[in-house]
Design a protein around this nucleic acid. Sequence first.
DNA 1: GCCGTTTTCGGCCCGACTGTTTTCAGTCG
Length: 554
Amino acid sequence: MGSSGPTPSNAQAAEAFREIADFLDVLGEKFKPEAYRRASRSIESLAEGLAAVAARDELRSIPGVGEAIEEKIREFLRSGRIDYLERLRREVPAGLVDLMRRPGLGPKTARRFWVELGIEGPAELRAAIEAGRLSGIKGFGERKIEQIRLALGGGEPVAGGTRLPIETVLPLARRIAGALRSGSPAKDVAIAGSFRRGRETVGDLDLLVTSEDPTRVFDVFSALPEVGEVRMRGGTKETVVLKNGLQVDLRVVEPSEFGAALLYFTGSKDHNVRLRSLARERGLKVNEYGIFRGEERVAGATEEEVYGALGLAWIPPELREDRGEIDRAAAGTLPTLVEPADLVGDLHAHLPDGATPKDLERLRAVAKARGARYVGLVVGGVRDDGTPWSLSKELGRAVAGARTTEPRIVAVAEVGPGPLPEPIRALDTEYLVLRPVGTANPGAGLPSGGLPTRVVAHRGGSPEAVRPWLDLARAASAALEVGPGPARADSSLARAAREGGVSLALPLGLDDAEENTTRDVAVGFARRAGARREDVANATGAADPTSGSKRSRR
DNA sequence: GCCGTTTTCGGCCCGACTGTTTTCAGTCG
């Protein structure tokens, strides 16, 4: 908390506002906490540093940032602290926020403990329970006290907010949905929630089905090998926790309500709130059962129907974040987003260490099965320790022999910024993939050596750290690689790229198992960034790297 | 605290579930 030092990151600012919201919750504020949380979420998903936005004087254009929060952001950027937060920290015991986050407890209960019993944290609450101080207090029966005792359990707040990467969840989610489709009386089966919106991380899974026989569906669901324990089962809803800790909610709804329920449980929260106020303006009401004028249901079976009743075009789930998509849906100007089937090649593929020509053929077979006409295969490059490497002579010949028949293999070198090492120059390659390898940093500039750089692959964490790589991509007219994993860009960086006129490269995930995990996650990120087919360098319509002009160079 | 074909005030999504209730408050998603 120094008063000077490096400019605080977006993540730190987002955390500060989340902390303010928590304290205000305990203080019993009604709407301010949500206001601070909204601003916090917006800041977190920003594709550039707050300092840059502040320098352009555009902080107020961030959704949820108004006069008061703008001033606090400026204070935070200036001094690394927010006086208002410091005051709250002095005024409200941090232990109350801990209490509030435990399951079954909320701000109201935490506040009552504080005001009525002088309790300031989990340890004191535990002692109060043991001493019987809660018995007889209004609203705390035996069961409630037992529930609280359980929630106090370990000492640390339970699992709160641990989210899994979507690439981890995707195969699991598809297996579960498939098992319900084929092994239970569930008819429509859909996965809603942030999973459907293609978010980078998933906190829990929301499954939605229609069925005449919910009990059978629940029985099949509970017995799946992935399921650890059943948390609760009601008439229309069951909650389980998977063996890996992921919570999964399964809901059975009427076919006439399926679209409304899918819309509702897909979110995002901000998107739903916006739809509801739009509905209210038009004398309509939206809930998870449908859209109503008075008692009469106007729509509900499909999402198209529900959006239609509000005068909106259907909005792709990846865009449902209240970033202006509702206005665009009203105006009919939503983009047609890129789809997996649009991808016609892979610009950046690897063979495993010690690969043989057989592995190359296997790679081509997979590529062909996934609709690829070409594969940019890395045949050499620079290791992390700075030394050059290349494929074996035998494999090199096999690659050369695969240049003309589809899927065509394009030889690629993977290098860091700066001058190209001589052994890499000597390789017979068509283009370069730029990555942070060796000791080179983005300040060293584009690789020099006469070959075009077509792909830039680096995420590097914070939006601030990644900017230079994006600038290199722009300077080289290269595509930014988008997708899961530390060496690819997430959706907010992809949006920054797209808005800055940099195209995207989407991996086909040729070394994935059968589920197409990498490809589908990458396409999801690109869609979240609003990318159309023409924004993607390896989609149909883009220049084919095998028909470029470099062949004449030799 | 934010926001506006309800714009400078007065709203701010809404229903299920739980436990504790003689009619509801709090939590959750």
